[in-house]
Amino acid sequence: MTPSAAILPQTTSAVAMIRTLGLIAALCGFIIVSAYQGTYDAVQENKRIAVERAVFKVMPTARSIVEYVASPAGAVVKVGAGDTAKSAAPLGGIKFYAGYDATGKLAGIAAEGVAKGYSDNVRILFAYDPASATITGFGLVAMRETPGIGDKILVDKNFLANFPLEAKLTGDLKKLAQAIVTVKHGSKTHPWEIDAITGATITSRAVGRAINDAAQMLLPRIVPQLSELKEKP
């Protein structure tokens, strides 16, 4: 019957479909891999510059930085330049940066901390000065706090005056002698307390928690090893 033949849809053979999909997948694969390889060096260089810029900002006296990983067993392992972080980092290791001054002496240690802010996580990079056992300052890695409110943590003079912040360890070097806490604006009485910004209490607290959590984890691992870090390797 001709009418049924007329409405029969034109079919494509399975081979044709698989051939086309396979060909396009191969072509797209080639494009993606070329783009990845072509941009790899530039991307790695950008990442290195971004880290250096952030570390130098929180440690103004540092002239060069070396990346380390502090393993749970208490050893500090130097991370090779570039992308070997994964192969060198032991499980559960914490990354930190040792900054050295022009003469090759340890100028400070920088590490990342993260805590929940008003919207999303607040990620900061803070600097620790081993000589005075204080947190000397912090810089921002990423946050999505309300513009004009949460971002005051970077410019508010009274807030920045919280630093240097005491971060001494207990006698057995197992944890901080005094946990770093953010207190209500105007009620700071101890050198390990952070005076919050009025109106930006949640973001202020996030900074305190981020520093405290990271310092509680990291400092007991690296303070016993400071002699190893003293000179630039």
Binding site: T12, A16, M17, T20, L21, L23, I24, A25, C28
Partner: peptide, 14 residues
Amino acid sequence: LIPKEVRIATYIVI
């Protein structure tokens, strides 16, 4: 070259 049966999949991959 693209059969209409698999066109959406193809476009998405591209």
